[in-house]
């Protein structure tokens, strides 16, 4: 995946996130959107990979990383229980990265330790947030983008 497409993946996740959890939306709509986004991210990864997905193991869980990022972004639009779902979405992302890294490590790939540490740190730190202001949301989104693009 080229750095440009990697950055575009982040934007794609951000764009998709705005459709989730809209007020009054049914579980069917949200479920179908989640499945649809995963499909979209899979197709994006498949056709956007500079190398084939078969030969680049780091792309194996790329669509799931995109989905986790999308869920993180989507929590900022929640009306209630924002801290709870923000922590859970970040934990999910951390989870995908950590266990993906363990699986890849056993097959000879290096683990993205900095990314995992950054996500673990922000997830733990987020549990202490009591009020999540608009400014704090913006900071978190910038942090997630930085983790995605640079680490």
């Amino acid at each position: 995946m080229t750095p440009l497409l990697n950055a575009f993946a982040c934007l794609l996740a951000l764009g998709c996130a705005s459709f989730l959890w809209r007020k009054g939306s049914s579980p069917y709509r949200n479920g179908a959107l989640l499945a649809g986004f995963l499909l979209l991210f899979s197709v994006f990864t498949y056709f956007g990979a500079s190398d084939t997905v078969v030969t680049d193991p780091s792309l194996e869980h790329y669509p799931f990383r995109m989905l986790a990022l999308c869920l993180c972004f989507s929590t900022t639009s929640l009306g209630i229980y924002r801290r709870r779902y923000l922590v859970l979405a970040q934990a999910l992302w951390c989870w995908v990265e950590l266990f993906g890294a363990i699986a890849l490590y056993y097959r000879g790939c290096d683990a993205a330790c900095v990314r995992i540490a950054a996500l673990a740190g922000i997830t733990f730190g987020s549990t202490f947030l009591s009020q999540i202001s608009r400014e704090m949301e913006f900071c978190l989104m910038v942090f997630w983008m930085a983790v995605w693009v640079f680490f």
């Binding site: 579980p27 069917y28 479920g31 179908a32 989640l34 499945a35 649809g36 995963l38 499909l39 899979s42 197709v43 498949y46 997905v53 078969v54 194996e60 669509p63």
Partner: peptide, 18 residues
């Protein structure tokens, strides 16, 4: 029903990938 859709999307990724 919703989980079956998500599982289907994962299977499609498995198909694309392997």
């Amino acid at each position: 029903l919703i989980t079956s859709w998500i599982l289907c999307a994962i299977w499609i990724w498995d198909l694309l990938f392997k």
